[in-house]
Design a protein around this nucleic acid. Sequence first.
RNA 1: GCCCCCGUAGCUCAGUGGAUAGAGCAUUCGCCUUCUAAGCGAAUGGCCGCAAGUUCGAGCCUUGCCGGGGGUACCA
Length: 588
Amino acid sequence: MITDDLASLVRSAVLAARDAGEFSLSEEDFAVPLVTPRQKEHGDFSSTVALSLKKATGMNDSREIAARILRHLPPENPLIESTDVAGPGFINFHLKPDWLHAVLPRIEVEDACYGTTNSRSGEKVLIEFVSANPTGPISVVNGRAAALGDVLGNLLAAQGCQVGREFYINDALNSTQMEIFAESVIARYLQQNGYPLHFADGRTEPGVPQAESVGEFVPAEFPEKGYPGDYVREIAEKIMGEVGAKYVRSDEDERRAYFRTATLRYMIASQRAALEAFGLHYDTWFFESSLYESDAVEQTIAKLKERGYAYEKDGALWLRSTALGDDKDRVLVRSNEKATYIAADAAYHDNKFQRGYTHLINIWGADHHGYVARLKAGVAALGYDPKRLEIVLTQMVSLVRDGEAVIGGKRKGNVIELKEDLIEEIGKDAARFYFLLNSYETPATVDVELAKKQSNDNPVYYVQYAHARLSNILRTAEARGLMRKPAQDIGLAALTHPSELDVLRKLTDYPAEVTTAATDYAPHRLTRFGMDLASLLNVFYENCRVLPGTEENISPEVTAARLALVNGARIVLRNLLTMLGISAPEKM
RNA sequence: GCCCCCGUAGCUCAGUGGAUAGAGCAUUCGCCUUCUAAGCGAAUGGCCGCAAGUUCGAGCCUUGCCGGGGGUACCA
């Protein structure tokens, strides 16, 4: 890294100045901060070391400190064009343009790997995200976590981590919501078969008329807290198509058992289809029920008892989570002998660690923040370092329709679906970019109607367009017989225009940007980077013609150098879009 | 009450403790005979919620306050 080179250069200059008696240094261990100045006049890099050395040197005038340091910088350096002291004591470095040119051969060689490292190759990371309950479709609100988790996976893989993406299915048998959901589908199924439906609010819906009259239909009850959405009716229709009227008069337990598994099957299939339409593929779909079937829950509870973190009180079994940072103890097994979700979650995370993951990332909505402390306590109680479990809380996504808040969800029956209402309207690429535009720490509002209206203004097209243009230039060059030579063999010094250097600088920044995005869990840095790069490319495009035109005459050397730049930028844009799970079109 | 997140341009949001705080949208005015105008250039627009503290230096760190959202179950 060039910044490392500069930093060590400055460091030795400081020490040399001290040895020469320019100033005394109270501490040997000082940082050499390097920043990229906002203003171009301030050079390529700037060090604030003189400012921070005020105390250590006992000198008051930072400009003077800077000047004395500079006196001990080697006069000739292949990197540095010139230096100056500015403002309160910044040391500014203006580098020779070669350092920017060097990026092009590197990009060309690394190609799809440009922007990736293997610095974290020892890590095995499991990202669990979305994990929406199997009682409804994937909603637009889930889109944020879906996009974040997927791209985070790409970013970590780009750092060399081994990444697993997992969806956790809350299908446990003691979950009352699953029961009510199945009952809701049964009610709709009966309605399909001619039974009127009676609702808790007193309303009655007629049954679907049957061809052959079977006499009187006793109204069926729709569950009091049942799921009213249209998708419930659709599942009932599908089951009807599959098994016909078989379960209308069947034994109730038999019917319930069938509908439980059938509704789960349909719901998962629908969720999976929605996420795949979003370009998201999970490595594992993990069933909560499997934890009960394999006795993992019981084993985990036994383990907690053994380790002294579980105790009996009021007929229930409690987790001593207060001992591990939680603000109250939590029930593991209720007095009715049913395990709580925290017991299952402890077992689930035990299982994740047992699968060899070094690091777990859970992406949750901010409304779950109250569970962070207890899950971490559970993990710690099992003997794992809770730091190995990281919980990313995404701020809330609220729904708005034409400016008015939409309150609701599965229980209200007004789910706004990710696939039907967004992806199918504006496309996968625009939908993804939309969710990746902002930090997950910013509360978001999604207005589907507005998103549709604005879909042509979506900045994704700006970035994709830049890529398509670059591709087009290369295509045209090839058609005209201007074959590209390896960047290594080209006189890149021909690239001198400010807009060319701006592009090169941005391309140089890319790998560090990917790393920052990965460590900060900030995919939005890449969408912003893409917009910035596209903008710089447009300026380049306006100012620097690549291929000889009818009016402008461009030397073969310049064309060759610019083609190398175009190709480098094309690779970076393509890598970036791929990282975001967005297509990089060659034509638009 | 306690805990978490957010207050930056008219709107939606970026912003690594550094110099003159940025982008997109919106508004106004220019620019297509050329490799893609889904583009470019210019203008307008700011007590970075308020106050104190730390620091050579604070939009960024600390504390307090004010506003908005969320959470505080033997529900998941």
